[in-house]
């Protein structure tokens, strides 16, 4: 049961295609798990469709449709053969890793980027009880996409944000001043949030986190870590 959903702004920006790569990836991973937000995405895309229909019509170059017909006539017959309604929705070569291959916990898109599941992640220790793995996702300038693993019993250094931090829980749960976050939950933290997450069960908590500016830690100890950690 997911309790913390994506904000309207994130849904709209995803529908419009205007989120940076890392955030878009995180949103998509959440949508994989959350029918509620998926329905909201559909609504947002309907808005896009309605707006498209109302855009002014602009003159096309001559012969556009004929060029198009020539192009589709040249397309390999293979396309036609695979064009029967396909109830799995899989179009050859265009669908992401099938759900069976990535285990129960990791969203398909993430598995696709990582090339493996949680068990094979090469975690780096960044502080007591905190491990991270930086994902090779090229987002906008300053955007950083990482997996974080919080071990039970350790408190993440209190930190605040210059930019935004968005987190999706993939495994386990954590809590902080703003509430409790379980698998599938989203936390969007803005400039004004100042928090200290703690994994609050026996299990490690694994999160996908996207930040658009470096985090700022409050206390001395973690600040010493910061240059090494690069959080």
């Amino acid at each position: 049961m997911i309790n913390h959903h994506l904000s309207d702004e994130m849904i709209l920006a995803y529908a419009a295609g205007s989120l940076p790569a890392g955030q878009a990836m995180l949103v998509r991973c959440h949508l994989d798990m959350c029918p509620h937000c998926l329905q909201r995405l559909m609504d947002a895309q309907n808005v896009g469709g309605a707006l498209l229909d109302e855009l002014p019509e602009m003159d096309l170059n001559e012969g556009g449709f004929d060029r198009l017909l020539a192009q589709i006539d040249d397309m390999p017959v293979l396309d036609e053969a695979s064009s029967h309604p396909d109830h799995t929705g899989v179009v050859e070569g265009e669908v992401l890793a099938a759900s069976s291959s990535h285990g129960p916990d990791m969203p398909a898109l993430l598995h696709d980027v990582m090339g493996h599941g949680f068990d094979d992640i090469k975690w780096k220790l960044v502080g007591p009880g905190i491990r991270q793995f930086i994902l090779p996702v090229q987002g906008s300038e300053g955007e950083k996409v990482r997996l974080l693993k919080l071990s039970p019993g350790f408190v993440t250094p209190q930190h605040s944000h210059h930019g935004s931090e968005i987190t999706l829980v993939l495994k386990g749960s954590f809590c902080d001043e703003t509430g409790r976050y379980k698998k599938g939950d989203i936390q969007e933290a803005d400039d004004d949030v100042d928090h200290q997450p703690i994994a609050d069960t026996e299990e490690d908590c694994i999160c996908l986190t996207v930040t658009d500016a470096p985090l700022e830690f409050k206390k001395m100890m973690p600040r010493l870590f910061q240059p090494i950690v690069g959080i």
Binding site: A24, M25, V91, E94, V95
Partner: peptide
Amino acid sequence: EKSFVYRDDQ
């Protein structure tokens, strides 16, 4: 850089 996310919206 983000086309992989939207690769198959179907």
